[in-house]
Amino acid sequence: MDRELTPLELKKLNSNKALIALLSRKQLNVERALRYIDYERKLKKLQTEVIKLQTWAIENNERIVIIFEGRDAAGKGGAIRRITERINPRHIRIVALPKPSEDEQTQWYFQRYIQQLPKAGEIVFFNRSWYNRAVVEPVNGFCTQEEYEIFMTQVNDFERMILDSGIHLVKIYMSISKKEQAKRFDEIKNDPLKQWKMSPVDEKAQELWDEYTKYKDSMFEKTNTENSPWKVIKANRKTEARVNAINHILKRIPYNKDIEI
């Protein structure tokens, strides 16, 4: 670091969290530690607002669906954890569905997602959603071209029905670069506590990068509607992405910001 620290920066660094941030890497990085302290401060303030949003939803029997999509290792799960870690767990659900069962494969595609929609006063977070059929499935050969095309003709009507029923719907896409994805895959593979996250689909993600891009662009072109728009969050820096995702949710949901908690 080739500049003098301001008194405010010195004050920020004089804390346990700052020391942990400084010492968590082999090489001291003061700028990184300062960014982390600022992130923690912003996050705490935003999490307070998320509590207000949840309180409003419970008191008014509101129903909220928040979708997180993005490439493998884009930080969807981490963002959801930061959003939900301070709120009442009895009034939220995090949905990350496995591949369809044999019975589910015979059903209307949207059927198993309908079963996961929120009851009154509940917020449901989808860590991947029905949009699997827009990108992941066709790229990896998990659906036919006909099934893909049927989905693309039905999805906007499906979301219109969700909105018309009074459910709030927020769609977030976490966007990372190919280089950043490769870096995160390496970190996952080398961390015994994270290795379970790698799947055969993940292993092929770099090889199929351009195919993912093609289907992702088609998804945005077709489903980024006025009533149900996508919010693309640049996610190469996880902390900024989490803050931006929470900010977007708070802007999209018309909760009472003056509510007492």
Rank of each mutant, 00 (worst) to 15 (best):
R3T: 00
L8C: 02
K11E: 06
K17W: 07
L19G: 03
S24P: 02
L28G: 02
N29T: 02
N29G: 01
A33H: 05
Y39P: 03
R41N: 11
L46N: 03
T48R: 10
V50D: 10
I51W: 11
K52N: 12
K52R: 15
W56M: 04
A57G: 06
I58G: 06
I58N: 06
A74P: 03
A74V: 02
I80Q: 02
R82L: 03
E85H: 05
N88A: 02
P89K: 14
I92V: 14
P98T: 01
K99N: 08
S101R: 02
S101V: 09
W108A: 03
Y109Q: 05
F110G: 04
Q111V: 03
Q115D: 14
K119A: 15
R128D: 04
R128Y: 15
V136I: 14
V136L: 13
V139L: 10
N140S: 06
N140W: 07
C143L: 12
C143W: 09
E146W: 12
T153R: 15
V155Q: 13
N156R: 01
H168Q: 15
L169Q: 02
M174F: 15
A182L: 04
N190H: 09
P192F: 06
K194I: 04
K197W: 01
S199W: 05
L208N: 12
L208S: 07
T213Y: 05
Y215A: 09
D217C: 03
M219S: 12
F220G: 07
N224S: 11
E226C: 04
S228R: 02
V232T: 12
A235Y: 15
R237V: 11
R237P: 00
E240M: 10
R242P: 13
N247F: 07
K251Y: 08
R252A: 11
I259D: 01
E260G: 00
